[in-house]
Design a protein around this nucleic acid. Structure first.
Lengths: 156, 156
DNA sequence: GTGAGGATGTCATAACATATCAAGAAATGA
DNA sequence: TCATTTCTTGATATGTTATGACATCCTCAC
């Protein structure tokens, strides 16, 4: 398996692995993985890119669903709350999680050229931010860590 | 001087220092520090809090300015572009910079209770994000690093 | 004083997100 | 099985954040 989504990889496996993991997680935790929620996650998984809620709505509409804004936002809330997707604050957009269901503190690398996104993992208490927080007496509950730049392929 | 804005400090000195530094920077770089831009920065400096563009607009209006949205966004663009203010992506809001004009890579700690914000500084190439970027072959150009949690005072 | 570029005034609208309430479906327990 | 509760969805409306476009005006260099 590719260590990050900038590398060439078998994307259908990538999608299947995530869907399988999410299904299992929902079964265990008695979460309702309804058709809309499933479809929105599938849409996010199509690419390692972030999609806005209205991009998702457009796709849902083209498939015949009703698709007023709350439809997308509710599905996204469900996916984000349960760790199946993340919001990219810099872009006001959403991306499928690479490690669904597991507790983790993600960091993102966003290519400004091809818009691909790869997810890395951090330890919130370590590193420069953790140190700054300790110095300030600040108790971290959530972090947003996003880097913008150029992915390997777009540096040429 | 306080090492971070969570501590008690002489805030009028805080404001004066920043305004003086910004004035100097604008003089040197031939930037037009116009009344609107100055006023918006003063508004941001009133507290170590982030304000939305429309919060700023409300204040400008209450002072008799015209104040259509572009008025605030243009002033904020100027302040951000020149390093006098930062956008807090998590909040879609803006905060005055503690170290105006200097090249730096900020990280923010946002108190979810009192909404105060303090700015720390990072080295983008170091730490966990820098390491993840090197591993992925990603070239970082900008970073968004924001922690949400509780400041020392609000932990009681 | 004229021209070029930057700054502002103003209107309009795009893009992102949520409140509310009604109706329907699924899980729960008697 | 039926009633109850809870979660999910449908639908309308609205709130919030941000930008496009164009006219006007100011400033500075020449």
């Amino acid at each position: 398996m590719a260590t990050n989504s900038f590398e060439d990889h078998d994307h259908s496996k990538c999608v299947n692995d995530v869907m399988t993991a999410v299904e299992a997680h929902c079964a265990i935790h008695k979460l309702q993985f309804t058709p809309i929620r499933r479809r929105v996650l599938e849409i996010l998984l199509q690419d390692h890119r972030a999609l806005g809620a209205y991009d998702i709505l457009d796709i849902l509409r083209s498939e015949g669903h009703s698709a007023q804004p709350p439809v997308a936002y509710r599905a996204l809330d469900f996916l984000v709350k349960n760790g199946f997707a993340h919001k990219i604050e810099r872009l006001n957009a959403f991306v499928a999680c690479s490690h669904p269901g597991e507790e983790h503190t993600p960091a993102f690398m966003i290519c400004r050229s091809c818009e691909s996104i790869t997810e890395a993992h951090r330890e919130p208490e370590q590193g420069q931010l953790g140190e700054a927080a300790r110095n300030a007496g600040f108790r971290i509950e959530r972090t947003v860590v996003e880097a913008e730049g150029l992915c390997p392929k777009c540096q040429d």
